[in-house]
Design a protein around this nucleic acid. Structure first.
Length: 273
DNA sequence: AAAGATGCCTGTAAGC
DNA sequence: TGCTTACAGGCATCTT
């Protein structure tokens, strides 16, 4: 599931192969993604030069003179750079031929992802209400504590709220709470400043480590060169229900929080009301 | 206003 | 064996 580390990995993987080159052909095989693809806007990118590739939250931003291509990988999306003779697979929905000779392919079996066009990023509703980047200094203990003080939602939902902090999805929320020894069902406002500090630092550490490992591949995610991410091997509690906690041997529990699988150790992550 | 529920999708695995 | 069903979840949108 592409969360910040997977999107960052993808961004780094495609940037060098794209920046400075032109789009020579756009082929839309399936335009029914999260939102219908704007065929006209995408086709206009032919002969346009790619100025930069960057990331905001879980969105990949590809800059051209007239505007930005904004990509979201949703649940199952991935971007790959392939040679033009490589045959296309099922769910390869969109591809861009690059003047270098390579082809950029957008692959997304579940089609929860998006390929959007924006003349200016400020106008894009998806980017308007996003919180700070987790790896920036704006995301710090004081910020998290101040926000948490005002929230009655459980802490796991809180850190997955993109208006609070971006990039943290289910897997990294579960892992961060385990490593910070915070029960996922704690009410946000019950966290102390010290706990917020630890959680903040832990989220940053987990995301950085995951980026270094090339992200987490469980099913669908692949890096732009087709290689899987290797952080799955470092996950401590995610998908470990019934197995002993690596620290204390207590059996890892699985619960559902807002329709999402949540794993925790009741000993390492005690709940105080 | 805040928080919970819903729908969009398809591959995989489990159950009969 | 082949069908049906449950599950995986990011996020906009709807409901309470």
């Amino acid at each position: 599931m592409p969360e910040l580390p997977e999107v960052e990995t993808t961004c780094r993987g495609i940037a060098k192969a794209l920046v400075g080159y032109k789009i020579t052909r756009v082929h839309i095989r399936e335009g029914r993604l999260r939102w219908p693809v704007n065929h006209q806007a995408l086709k206009r990118l032919k002969n346009q030069k790619i100025l930069s590739v960057s990331r905001r939250a879980k969105y990949i931003l590809i800059e051209f003179a007239p505007g930005f291509l904004v990509l979201h990988l949703g649940m199952s999306g991935s971007l790959r750079l392939v040679k033009p003779n490589e045959s296309c697979r099922k769910h390869d929905h969109i591809e861009w031929q690059i003047s270098s000779g390579l082809v950029l392919r957008y692959h997304d079996p579940r089609r929860f992802g998006a390929v959007l066009w924006a003349e200016n990023l400020e106008a894009l509703p998806q980017l308007q209400k996003l919180g700070p980047e987790p790896l920036s200094s704006a995301f710090n203990a004081q910020y998290l504590f101040a926000k948490a003080q005002k929230s009655q939602v459980v802490i796991k939902s809180f850190i997955m709220n993109q208006q609070i902090v971006v990039g943290v999805g289910n897997i990294y929320a579960v892992e961060s709470l385990y490593l910070a020894k915070i029960h996922p069902l704690r009410i946000s406002s019950s966290l102390s400043l010290a706990e917020c500090r630890l959680l903040c630092v832990t989220i940053k550490r987990v995301l950085k480590k995951a980026i270094e490992a090339g992200g987490t591949t469980l099913q669908d995610f692949y890096q732009s060169d087709g290689q899987p991410g290797y952080f799955a091997q470092k996950l401590q509690v995610y998908d470990e229900a019934g197995k002993p906690c690596r620290k204390c041997k207590t059996v890892i529990e699985k619960i559902t929080v807002q329709n999402r699988s949540t794993y925790f150790c009741s000993t390492c992550q005690p709940f105080f009301a």
